[in-house]
Design a protein around this nucleic acid. Structure first.
Lengths: 107, 107
DNA sequence: TTTTTATATTGCAATATTACGATAATTCAA
DNA sequence: TTGAATTATCGTAATATTGCAATATAAAAA
C-alpha cells in the first residue's frame, strides 16, 4: 500500500495533517523562517536563499501556498510571497489549546 | 532522487520538520486528539480506537514517541501513553512567536 | 510451565515525496 | 517583435512512507 487511509479520519484531522505535512520538510521550514526574517513580502529572491534548484523551490512554494501557509501576489515578472497570519494563528491556537488542556491532566 | 537534502539545513530546521512530519498523518493527529480527550494516560485501547491494524498503529505510536510528542510507560502487559506537555509547549511557542512577529509586518 | 494478552518487529507491496533537467509560460524592456 | 528575467510545469529517477500479514517478544494469569 502506501496510501494513507485518510477517508477514515475526520475532515479536521485531515486538514491539520495537511498543514503539518506542508511544513514537514526543512526547506519549507527555512522558507517560513526567511519570510519572517525579512521585514516584508519577498519578491523574487527566495530561490537564491535556498540550496535547491529553481524548480524544486517552486514546488515547495506551491505546496505551502496550497494549504494556505503563504500567500503570493504577482508583481510584474516576480511574485511577492508572505506568510498568512490567519493560518499561523490557527496553528498557534491548536497547540495552545492542547497545552491548556494538558495542564490539569496527564502524568 | 527523493531524499530530502537535510544536510543543507540547520539542526533546528530539521528538528522542527521532524516534529511536523510526525503529526503530518491523520492517524497521528487522531491519536493526539484521543490522548487529549481521555482524561488520563491511556493504557491499551488505542488500537481499538483507530481504523487501522495493530502493527500499523504500533508504528504510528513509535514515530510519535521517537520525536517526543508522546511518552509511553510500560505497565504490565499494556503500555500507558500520554502527550508530552513540553513538546506541545515548544510547538505553541513556535507559532505564537511567528504570530507576534507578523503583527507588525507583512501585507 | 503453558496459555493468554498486549505490543513490537520484519518483510514486502503499493503509493507518495523529493529533486532537478528540460522546457513552457508570462511579463517587462528595448 | 525580440530578448531577458522570473516562475511554473512536465517527465522521470531515487528514495521514503504507509499498511498489514506473519511472526516475535514480554508479562501476567492459569
Amino acid at each position: 500500500m502506501g496510501a494513507s487511509k485518510s477517508e477514515f479520519f475526520s475532515e479536521q484531522q485531515n486538514e491539520l495533517a495537511s498543514l503539518f505535512k506542508a511544513i514537514s520538510h526543512p526547506a519549507r521550514v527555512a522558507i517560513i523562517e526567511y519570510l519572517l526574517k525579512v521585514d516584508s513580502c519577498i519578491c523574487g529572491d527566495i530561490v537564491n536563499e535556498l540550496p535547491l534548484a529553481q524548480p524544486t523551490v517552486s514546488q515547495h512554494l506551491k505546496e505551502l501556498k496550497n494549504v494556505g501557509i503563504i500567500k503570493g501576489n504577482i508583481e510584474g515578472t516576480a511574485i511577492c510571497y508572505c506568510l498568512n497570519p490567519e493560518t499561523m494563528k490557527k496553528l498557534e491556537n491548536y497547540f495552545s489549546g492542547i497545552s491548556k488542556e494538558l495542564k490539569t491532566k496527564c502524568c
